[in-house]
Amino acid sequence: EGALGYVREFTRHSSDVLGNLNELRLRGILTDVTLLVGGQPLRAHKAVLIACSGFFYSIFRGRAGVGVDVLSLPGGPEARGFAPLLDFMYTSRLRLSPATAPAVLAAATYLQMEHVVQACHRFIQASYEP
């Protein structure tokens, strides 16, 4: 009888962890890579990037990825799509507007974030409908 017990499931644990990781990012605590996007530095945690993006998975998964401190991503008109994606990784919220959706779509395609790509397609498609 003494072995019987309960599992206590903290239902908001994943969002609490993600929220703390986002705060660590904003404060630059334990961030271990700088993404250069059009010359603009974005600090992040490799562990979060690799968990969210197929592109980062292929970059960081091997031993060679440990030594990558700075990573240049494509600049140009697509560059403004990267910051919303980084925010999404750390918050689960994807900010889209008709003006930014094409850039976010391009960045998500580059980063191999298929589900975000699909969400962008749905958003763009819906914005064309009357």
Binding site: L4, G5, V7, E9, R12, D16, V17, R27
Partner: peptide, 22 residues
């Protein structure tokens, strides 16, 4: 299931909150 008889949901915060950047 190793003596587990029930799952109890905890709706409150699960970990400490890192202070927000000022």
């Amino acid at each position: 299931h190793e003596g587990v008889v029930a799952t109890v949901k905890e709706a409150g915060r699960s970990i400490h909150e890192i202070p927000r950047e000022e």
